[in-house]
Design a protein around this nucleic acid. Sequence first.
DNA 1: ATATTGATTCAT
DNA 2: TGAATCAATATA
Length: 186
Amino acid sequence: LAPELLGKLVVTADGRAGRIVEVEAYRGEQDPASHAFRGRTARNSTMFGAPGLLYVYFTYGMHYCANVVAGSVGEAQAVLLRALEPVAGLEAMRLARPVSDRDLCRGPARLCRALGIDTGFDGVDLTTGGGGIWLADDGAAAPDAPAVSGRIGLSKASEFPWRFSIPDHQGVSGPIRARGKISPQG
DNA sequence: ATATTGATTCAT
DNA sequence: TGAATCAATATA
């Protein structure tokens, strides 16, 4: 499911939108790197819910990251949104954080800042639009052969090749990759 | 390479 | 209670 999100749009009620260009998959209680690895807690309970929910968590004392819940109820699978290509509402994004347009949504915490996502959005349903943020499909196809590489920024299980991105897209978060020794792209 | 920053979690 | 950890980013 994770690679199929590539090319989809994330849209907010106030007119901001970005195209998904990079994601990572997390596989619930079987995945040592997943927040759900040690079972359900107050923080990760959204992951155990229905597919299509938005799981937002706060980390490093200052950053939010957003995931799309996948799998079925109770499986706690999720797809981390790592980078978007800004598509609409760029003015509001620049206001949230003044950086170059290319960097607005390049990185899991940056895209949350740019779209105004915080833990208040944790648990909203991305399929109905009622939560103020939703997924849209404008017909752009996911790449036939998405780039695959090791996950980024993890102290455990970073070797699992569950990071997917649009090949050679400039919006993909790059340099952080140097921390892992995985042969990148593919 | 290092500072930032605070919630969450696991161990006393 | 306390310490370690953390799916990150900015700055040097």
